[in-house]
């Protein structure tokens, strides 16, 4: 029982980080109808900048730099590559971002090589104990930051002018532009937010209990793809819930690997995708997705 609770809580916190990355994914999809596979390498970029900068400028400033770098990189992908072929079909755009992802990730992993770059978080490997459950402090912080950011996103989406513009553009871009909403600006903002979220996700994904920034961190963002699909491509709420589910599932399957060994070893990496497929069998547009999107 204790193991289950520990795993479950650990999974929730890990899931909170996935939620952040997935939320960025959904934001971009809603605003520009692009399935942004470059999110993974942008995450790696953010983490890389933080890891490289923290020794010279301090952790707080390094985080700011990392978030900024990721946001700028993300906006550039949109402005330089996507904008001019905005009306291309979903597949073309997705493959384009996949290409960007491969380029950026390859360059970054070449720079990182086999090194393990410390992210320099001041909380290090501290552990917080609540009701007998011991969780890494960085994960608790991640959960808190994720909760604040998700709530902030929700409020901004719901109540600010920007939120209204974004949702209008998401629903019917042409009509939104007829209402004077500048689609390129909305798109740039969405991409910037996605980049920033990726960098923050990257910060926590490479903090303890992970060792630090390695070349393969970009692959971690792959885990958010089942989260996004699970939640429904265009639903921020779905992305958050999907992230939590994937976090819990992957930690639980790893933790009960021995009991599940009849399914084969190394299940942790596959389980999120299996869960995704199961959900899609029952609900083809994800938990909260609108039908139109999956039909595209």
């Amino acid at each position: 029982m204790n193991q289950f609770v520990t795993l479950f809580v650990g999974g929730l916190f890990l899931g909170a980080i996935y939620s952040l990355v997935a939320l960025g994914f959904v934001t971009v999809f809603k605003a520009t109808h692009v399935i942004n596979f470059a999110q993974g390498s942008v995450l790696l970029l953010g983490a890389y900048v933080i890891a490289r900068a923290h020794e010279s400028v301090g952790f707080a400033l390094a985080v700011a730099l990392g978030v900024l770098a990721a946001a700028v990189a993300s906006v550039l992908i949109d402005a330089v590559l996507i904008r001019r072929i905005r009306r291309a079909d979903l597949g073309t755009l997705a493959i384009l971002t996949l290409g960007v992802d491969i380029l950026l990730a390859t360059e970054l992993s070449r720079r990182i090589g086999t090194d393990v770059l410390n992210i320099g978080a001041p909380w290090g490997s501290d552990v917080t104990e609540v009701a007998g459950i011991r969780v890494a402090t960085s994960r608790v912080l991640a959960g808190g930051v994720a909760a604040v950011l998700v709530a902030g996103f929700w409020l901004a989406f719901k109540f600010t002018d920007f939120g209204i513009a974004m949702r209008s553009a998401a629903e019917d871009g042409e009509v939104a532009s007829l209402m004077g909403i500048r689609l390129n600006r909305v798109a740039a903002t969405a991409w910037a937010l996605a980049g920033a979220l990726a960098a923050i996700g990257g910060l926590f994904l490479t903090s303890f209990p992970a060792a630090g920034v390695t070349g393969s961190v970009g692959l971690l963002a792959l885990a958010t793809i089942p989260a996004v699909v699970l939640g429904g491509f265009d639903s921020p709420g779905g992305a958050v819930l999907g992230g939590l589910i994937i976090g819990v599932v992957s930690v639980l399957t790893a933790g009960y690997q021995e009991e599940l060994s009849f399914l084969g070893r190394g299940l942790g990496g596959v389980a999120p995708f299996a869960v995704m497929l199961l959900v899609l069998l029952v609900r083809p547009s994800g938990l909260f997705g609108t039908r139109e999107v999956t039909r595209v």
Partner: peptide
């Protein structure tokens, strides 16, 4: 649109998932 020439599209095309209030706010941007 910002220079004062605003179109009501064919088939109305209101933002169906936004509330009435939000639709009006979108117009006011």
């Amino acid at each position: 649109a910002r220079s004062g020439l605003v179109q009501v599209p064919e088939g109305r095309r209101v933002f169906a998932n936004l509330t009435v209030e939000e639709n009006l706010r979108a117009g006011g941007l």
